[in-house]
Structures are given as C-alpha cells and as structure tokens.
Computed example of a mutant assay.
Amino acid sequence: MATLRDIKRKIGSVNSTQTITRTMKMVSASKLRRAQTDLEKIKDYAVKMEELTGRVVKNMPADAHPLLATREEIKKVLIVSIGSDRGLCGGFNTNVALTAENFSRQNRDTYERVGIYVFGRKIRDYLAKRKMDVIKSWVDIKNVDQELVDAVAGEIIELYLTGEFDKVYLSYTYFASPVKQEIVFEEFIPIKTPEDVEYIDYICEPDRMEIVGSLIPRYISTKIYYALVESQTSEHAARMSAMENATNNCGEMVRYLTLVYNKRRQEGITNEMMDIVGGAEALRGT
C-alpha cells in the first residue's frame, strides 16, 4: 500500500507532466496557426493547377506524354508516404504507416514489388521494423521549399520513366479541421483526368504539346508541395489535440490521487484517535 508521502510525490509528478503537456499544446496551437496560413496560400493554387492540368490534358492521346500513359502490365508500385519526424501526435504517423503496410501486404500476390518512398523518421522506423521495402526516406526536413519539392518530384518522375515502378500512389493526411484529419491514398502517376472535368479547347501558344511537357512536371511538384504542407498542418493539429487530451487526463489523475490522499490521511487520523481513546479507556479501567 502506498504511503501518504508516495501519493503526494506522485501528485507532484503528475502536476509537472500536466505543465509540460499544457505548454506543448500552446506551442502546437501557435505552430498550427502559422501552418494554416501557409496552407491557405498554397491550397487555392494547387486546386487551380489540378483543374488546369485536367482541362489541358483531357482528350489528349496517352502517348502525348510519358506521365499520361497507363502501362499495360502493372508489376511494380511505389507509395509516397508523408509523415513526420516527431511523435506525441496521437495516431498521425501510425495511420499513414498502416495504410502503406496494409496496401503492401494485401497486394503482395498482385505486384512483384511494392516500394515505399518515405517522409518522416517515425514512418521510416515503423516500416523498417516490419521489413517493408523502403527505397528512400527524407528526415529532418526543417522547411518545405521549392528546391526540396523539385528534387523530390524529379526523383519520383525518374523512378517512373526509367521503369523502376509502373504506378505511383500518394498517401498523406488531409487537414479537415483542427479536430479532424483524414488519410488520403490516391493514384498519383500516371496522371488521370477526372471524368467530370470540362474540356476547354484552349488556344495554345506555344504548341500544346510543349505546354503539356512543362505543365505536367510543374503539376507534380505542386501536388507534392501541397501534400507536404497539408501533412505538416495535420501534424500540428494532431499534436495539439493529443496534448489537450493528455492535459485533461493529468487533471483527472490529480483529482483522483488527491481524493485517495485525503482518504488515507483521514484514515490515519481516525486510527490515531481510536488508539488514544482505547489507551484512555484502558487507563481508566485500571
């Protein structure tokens, strides 16, 4: 049975933990506001870029560009999974890693190879422990800038064009709200035009094929940039929610331990009073 000193020490420890989690929640809330600002800047551009690309490439022959052609036989598939380097953000990283792991295991007999291109130390370590085929990992990314995105887009395009992989999927966390984030798993390359996209016969200058040749790589880099920013925003939101839950749990634990402490103290006082009364009665009887 824990003594009063042990309970009091535990209350102090939980209070210290609560202070840390409350501070981390405030830090995450501040980072989330900045991340939302960055997301708002890129979101409209990314949506318009996707719409424009869909309209321009619609009704074009599949051989107009190598990134538009669907290969007859899909043997090797690449998953681009975007997570984070840090933990303490609930199931943020685990959900993305599980999506890649489940797809790989479920399609083990369908494809010859399922490779995973990883962003984030947590996802890399999770998949490496489970013997998944991690072909490359990006860790310790301080800032998402155009240079980084262009390098990543160039590598992924090269992997597809050289025949290393026949299809590419993109997996990241979509920021729906500060309390809701959703996993996105979608086909990335080859580029597919949605059926509901309206075809517009643009007057092109220079030639339409030349425009498509420069537009598609730009679309791919924009999509990766957008997915990275979405993921970062979702990470801060998930960490803020996790730290808020941890802070509330610490408060409940402190209330429970305080109740236990008071009961034990009252029991001790009662026992002492009974000993005194019993001793007094014994003396009176003699």
Rank of each mutant, 00 (worst) to 15 (best):
P178N: 06
D44L: 12
N143M: 10
Q106L: 10
R105T: 05
M132F: 11
R218F: 00
V260M: 09
D207F: 07
S177K: 04
G83K: 05
R124I: 08
A46L: 00
N262S: 12
K223Q: 11
P178K: 07
L159R: 12
G12Q: 13
P178L: 02
M209D: 13
F119H: 09
K180N: 11
K136G: 08
S214A: 08
E147Q: 09
E195N: 14
G279Q: 03
I135E: 13
R5Y: 14
V149A: 08
E267M: 07
R108H: 14
L257Q: 06
Y169D: 04
V57Y: 08
P190A: 04
A62Y: 09
S13Q: 11
R121A: 14
R71K: 15
K41V: 12
I123T: 07
L148S: 01
T110E: 03
V80N: 07
Y174W: 09
I135F: 07
D109F: 05
K131T: 10
P178E: 13
M209K: 14
Y256I: 09
R9P: 00
F165H: 06
V14M: 07
I189Q: 04
E182T: 09
T222G: 02
G87V: 10
M60F: 04
K31I: 05
A46E: 00
Y111F: 10
S30L: 08
